[in-house]
C-alpha cells in the first residue's frame, strides 16, 4: 500500500504541475482529470474507498464536465491558446513562485515539526460515515442543502443570457466616457 501511495502522489503532483502550465484549457482539464484520479488513488491507499469513488464520480466526472461545457460554449480554441502563451512570460512566474515556495517551506517545517505517527492500515468502517453524517453533523447536512440550493439558483440566475446590463456605477462611468 505504501508504494501505491507514493506512486499515486507523484502522479497527482506531476499532473497538477501540468495543469497550471498548459496553454490550452482542454489540455489543462485532461491533466486535471489525471490529478483527480491520482488523488482518488491516495484516498484508496489511506483506506477510504468511499471518498475515492466520490472523487472520481463528482470531481473527475461532474465538475470536469461542467468546465468542458463552458470551454465549449465560450469556444476557446487556438486564439485563446496563443493569448495564453503571450501571458505566460517567465517573469510573471518569478514573484508568485518565490512567495508560494516560502509558504510551502513554512508548511513543511510545521508539518514535520509536530512529530509523526505511522498511518494505520485498516479501512474506516463505511457504516460509520452515514451514521455520523446524519447524527452529529445533521445541521451541517441541512446547511449544505441550502448551499447547493443557493448554488443552483445563483447559477441559473447569473448564467442566463440577458441583454447587456451594467451596474449603475459602471453605467455612469460609460456615459462619462
Amino acid at each position: 500500500m505504501n508504494y501505491l501511495f507514493y506512486i499515486s502522489s507523484i502522479v497527482a503532483i506531476a499532473a497538477t504541475v501540468m495543469v497550471i502550465t498548459r496553454h490550452q484549457p482542454v489540455h489543462a482539464l485532461l491533466y486535471l482529470v489525471v490529478s483527480f484520479l491520482g488523488v482518488a488513488m491516495i484516498f484508496l491507499s489511506l483506506g477510504a474507498p468511499f471518498v475515492a469513488t466520490l472523487e472520481i464520480i463528482l470531481y473527475a466526472g461532474a465538475i470536469i464536465v461542467l468546465f468542458i461545457f463552458v470551454v465549449m460554449m465560450l469556444n476557446l480554441g487556438r486564439e485563446s491558446a496563443i493569448q495564453e502563451r503571450q501571458w505566460m512570460q517567465p517573469k510573471t512566474w518569478i514573484g508568485p513562485s518565490i512567495l508560494t515556495a516560502i509558504l510551502l517551506g513554512e508548511l513543511l517545517v510545521l508539518l514535520t515539526m509536530g512529530g509523526s505517527a505511522p498511518m494505520p492500515q485498516q479501512t474506516v468502517d463505511l457504516k460509520k460515515i452515514p451514521l455520523s453524517l446524519y447524527g452529529e453533523y445533521v445541521i451541517a447536512v441541512e446547511l449544505t442543502g441550502f448551499l447547493l440550493m443557493a448554488g443552483i439558483v445563483g447559477a441559473a440566475h447569473i448564467g442566463r443570457h440577458k441583454k447587456k446590463y451594467l451596474h449603475r456605477f459602471l453605467k455612469q462611468e460609460e456615459e462619462a466616457v
Partner: peptide
C-alpha cells in the same frame, strides 16, 4: 484515517458539495 474516525471523510463530503456549488456559480 490517522485516527480511524469517519469525521475526515464527512468533511470531505462537505467540501465536495461546496466545490460543486462554487464551480456552478463561478462558471456562470
Amino acid at each position: 484515517a490517522r485516527w480511524g474516525q469517519p469525521d475526515g471523510q464527512v468533511m470531505f463530503l462537505f467540501i465536495l458539495a461546496m466545490a460543486a456549488s462554487e464551480v456552478s456559480v463561478g462558471l456562470a
